[in-house]
Design a protein around this nucleic acid. Structure first.
Lengths: 335, 335
DNA sequence: GTTTGTTTCGTGAACGTTCACGAGCTTGAT
DNA sequence: ATCAAGCTCGTGAACGTTCACGAAACAAAC
């Protein structure tokens, strides 16, 4: 009944310790522990009991070494604070678990550097990486050598597998909706620095041109607070805005706050459309109209793609290593 | 420049392949790859280049086997959909990374069974577990044998390390606040089935008794939707309620929706206090008053505790294996 | 009582890496 | 020339497990 964790001094019990204690051989212990056939029931139980008593845990390293690698994939996530990413992570974990894979999550949000740092941390322990790597996709692939990488939302990453989103399509969907409900003075709030438009921003700009719509573009830090401040400033500079499209749902939440603070009713004075389709949108006031993505689809797509790359069914740089998903417009109260 | 991922057929390149290609020995390759001293700069570069070309990646299993285990801890999370948990996970990951540990996340939310299943999946690949294991804490510890477990929010789990929260204190804080702003007809919304009060619920009940406050208790499924429906029903059965304390922030968000739908103003007609202190609260309308927990503290506490258990500095079942954290009342608009 | 088959168990080898130690070579000083 | 000291590099051993195979032991059938 004594119980004490094996300190750093006390070496872990090995399979030989158990074998000796039970008066049997290694192989018999292996058979007992892994429920393999060819062993008497009584022996099996005796060995298992003894193993429990000695606190024996098979070394995953030794096991992995001899059995050939269980594939384990790294998941690099920018920011677990934005509900979108945990939802995505959850989906990937689910799909990977179905395949018997093992997922190691690393988020590089809290000031702990860039996506490259995450990949660097992940590198020694995984056979592949899935992640929102942003502009560092190519370097990440270089760092991982021949191990496959699936990059989300970065179509330029040609060396790896990629999943991107049809932003022109999504932008059109949103702008048409705003036009349809009679909005003429539209604005788009992008994430990131003012001197550089995101892929989404560029698509929105082009869609506006195509549709002959006049569009004001503002920039904010990628967070609810950033969006709130930016929209506050925008309302001062461009008071007539009556339709607002926002980079993502979290920022849209911040935008709603700023609009309320500025005395604008939503959607009366200004309609708002977000992007992501996270459950948060339904909790806001008013409920958020958004360009939604089925995250289970995204996770499934990423894992499928990686599977193809890992098994070799999908040669790198071939057609099929890159696929594009489409958003769907979910209309709720805000637009 | 040819690049192709090593299929399942093509065996991985080993250290011997690199050594042969470079015309050196294993050890020299090891020295080159790990930036160890005692090797000529020129050799180092030549070997590294060759390794890159052959797509050589050191086997983490072989490395782990000989170097002794890098500790890796499993994190068992009930539901990544509730923003509280990713935030907690993020905090644990951060603290663990600081120690050079490695974190494997498993969530058992999406119908994939109980916390025990998660522990079972985690068991072969981790040296310890941190998690919200609920009632299965004891079984989990049994399953993990001598490997330490840190259980969150389950004070009865005496076999393992534990972190719990001072609910009597928190309940008092909330009820006093509601009384202070003149609320007399209070209700508490618990999570879980009607026939069983949660630990939080029990503490709230006792605090109400102590303070001589009359309190109605309702039950809902642990989700925003569950809370919305339950509060809707409550408003019909108990229309006079003017102060509401809710199991957690996500459910509080649902409660706000139901109150709005029921034509109640918040906090005018009914004040609301949540519990968790997640950022979501600030995005709601009105902003949510809540019993907040500094998640970085919780993560740090869990990792510290585990560290003590792993190193043996903290004997199991001793004082100090169980510690209690306190909530803080963050007053915003809703109460 | 021999043969045949089945169940139960044990032994050498291998997985891929690092560690401890020692060997060869170069350099510089005596 | 000799020795010592410092680089550079290589070899046997070990890490803990499973796999492939063979050896006992036992039961069943003739």
């Amino acid at each position: 009944m004594s119980s004490s964790f094996p300190g750093p001094t006390a070496k872990r019990a090995t399979i030989l310790d158990v074998a000796a204690a039970a008066g049997v051989s290694r192989q018999t212990v292996t058979r007992a522990m892994n429920d393999m056939p060819g062993i008497k029931q009584e022996t099996r139980e005796r060995v298992q009991e003894l193993a429990r008593e000695l606190g024996y845990t098979p070394s995953r390293y030794a096991k992995g070494l001899v059995q050939g690698a269980r594939t384990s994939v790294g998941l690099a996530i920018p920011d677990l604070t934005n509900p979108y990413f945990p939802a995505f992570a959850s989906s990937v974990v689910e799909m990977a678990t179905l395949r018997g894979w093992n997922v190691v999550v690393d988020d590089f949000g809290h000031g702990s550097g860039s996506s490259l740092d995450a990949v660097e941390r992940l590198s020694p322990q995984v056979d592949a990486v899935i992640g929102y790597l942003g502009p560092h996709a190519a370097e990440a692939q270089a760092l991982l050598g021949r191990r496959p990488v699936v990059v989300l939302d970065e179509p330029s990453a040609l060396t790896a597998g990629g999943i991107s989103f049809d932003y022109p399509f999504a932008a059109r969907l949103a702008l048409e909706r705003l036009a349809e409900i009679g909005r003429r003075r539209l604005a788009y709030l992008d994430a990131g620095p003012a001197w550089q438009l995101s892929a989404r921003g560029a698509a929105v700009g082009r869609a506006a041109d195509d549709l002959g719509i006049d569009l004001t573009v503002a920039h904010a830090e990628d967070s609810a607070e950033g969006a709130r401040d930016a929209v506050g400033a925008m309302l001062a500079a461009y008071p007539g805005v009556d339709g607002l499209l926002v980079f993502n749902d979290l920022m849209a939440a911040g935008a709603l706050k700023a609009l309320a603070a500025g005395g604008r009713s939503v959607p009366g004075d200004c309609a708002v459309i977000g992007m992501d389709g996270i459950p948060l949108g339904m909790l806001l006031t008013p409920e958020l109209t958004t360009l939604s993505l089925d995250l289970r689809d995204v996770g499934r797509a990423a894992v499928d793609l990686l599977d193809g790359l890992l098994t070799g069914a999908l040669p790198p740089r071939s057609a099929g290593t890159h696929l594009t998903l489409r958003h769907e417009l979910v209309i709720r109260a805000s637009a």
